[in-house]
Design a protein around this nucleic acid. Structure first.
Lengths: 223, 223
DNA sequence: GATTGTAGGATTGTTGAACGATTCGACGAT
DNA sequence: ATCGTCGAATCGTTCAACAATCCTACAATC
């Protein structure tokens, strides 16, 4: 049965627009297309060998994911998150992740492990001074938290939020230091969870959001 | 200054695709386009006087809003929410709305009033046996709750959830009775909030979600 | 009778070209 | 220095075309 399910996903051919959108998303999140950059329909379409119409469909998809912004008759641009965007982002994360974390005692062991293990990985990365991977492992930790809620709609929306956050990281400076600062916080949260003191863990998570938001906003405003 | 802001929104001409999407969304939510219906590109495009390419852009927008589903080489269909969809929907609402409601004491009086007043309106509608408007007023109540979180990203996503929920209502039966059943619950929640017992209100809200989810799933499965 | 193969017509997926509408930047007038 | 004006570049939208895919009906097979 599981093989059938796998075949199904292989059969679901992605449309050209979808593939183009995936490729562009990756390039933006990898930093090859910097925030603020304008994406010319002609240039991109020519380089990728797709027609303008198809490319525009791809742009719409990424606009909905908040990776691009669309200005009428001016074109699409790689989004440049503002301080207000970051505040909004963290307001959403506070509600979603704190709410998801409260379900700690109601979920499967596999779900709990998906929260714990990324923190260990992040610590290992940080000890090797590999801070770019520290950041991605950190996001895995938060993805794991969201998944405690058992809602694909929530995880999908959160993935959009995380993508936007990574864009904000690109705009800000000194992000290596940022990730190093908040790693101990995550360790403490996992510790509290293992102790069974869920409500305290939630409180720590909320405090982490307060601190990280203020820090990131600061790195965005004075620049 | 406020007039300038108004003018700005007027200046932001919506694209044709956006206008078409808005029109189709309205028709779907009003029930003029029933769940499961296939939307032919030629038929719709011809009726609305827009080209196929523009119409396809509109379809993409609505697909992202989960109002339509897109099947490769088969076309787009009005979404027919399943029982699993409803469960996922309520899992997301539980996290979002309970989390937002916990902020009750940290928000402005205007925000609090936007939670209270829809309940009074719903009661008034119900006394006149106007249950379609009872349902919309009820949704306003929940929209007000989400707005306590102070995040446009969260309210936007919630609006998508509510739209999907209204689609589920169309598939289910006897929804008049449904809305009548859960109206007293909302009154009690507002009462608890006014008493200052926020945590009890959150608990009531969670119980409401449990009951409503089970009820709605039931109306969707045995049919 | 139920299942499988096959031809066809209809619909979608994608492209390319076209043209009006809008924006941007440079240039010159005040 | 500020304000119009003009032209080039780009976007918004439409149209026509063709390949790829799906659906239906009918025939063939067991």
């Amino acid at each position: 049965m599981s093989t059938l399910a796998q075949n199904k996903s292989n059969l679901e051919r992605a449309s050209t627009a979808q593939k183009v959108a995936d490729m562009l998303r990756e390039q933006v999140l990898d930093g090859e297309l910097a925030p603020g950059l304008r994406l010319s329909e002609e240039a991109i379409g020519g380089a990728l060998g797709v027609s303008r119409n198809t490319l525009r469909e791809a742009f719409r998809l990424l606009t909905r994911d908040r990776i691009l912004v669309h200005e009428h008759s001016r074109g699409v641009f790689v989004r440049t998150p503002t301080a207000d965007d970051v505040r909004d982002l963290y307001a959403a994360r506070r509600v979603i992740e704190c709410g998801a974390l409260r379900r700690w005692n109601d979920v499967t062991e596999a779900q709990r492990e998906a929260v714990r293990s990324p923190v260990l990985r992040a610590v290992a990365r940080a000890e090797k001074n590999d801070f770019s991977k520290t950041g991605t492992a950190n996001i895995q930790f938060h993805r794991g938290i969201v998944r405690l809620a058992d809602s694909v709609r929530l995880t999908d929306e959160s993935d959009r939020l995380f993508a936007e956050l990574m864009l904000a990281f690109r705009v800000a400076r000194e992000m290596d230091e940022f990730h190093r600062t908040y790693l101990p916080w995550n360790r403490r949260i996992v510790e509290l969870l293992n102790n069974g003191t869920v409500e305290q863990a939630v409180e720590q998570l909320a405090e982490y959001f307060d601190a990280a938001e203020q820090d990131l906003v600061g790195r965005l405003t004075r620049r």
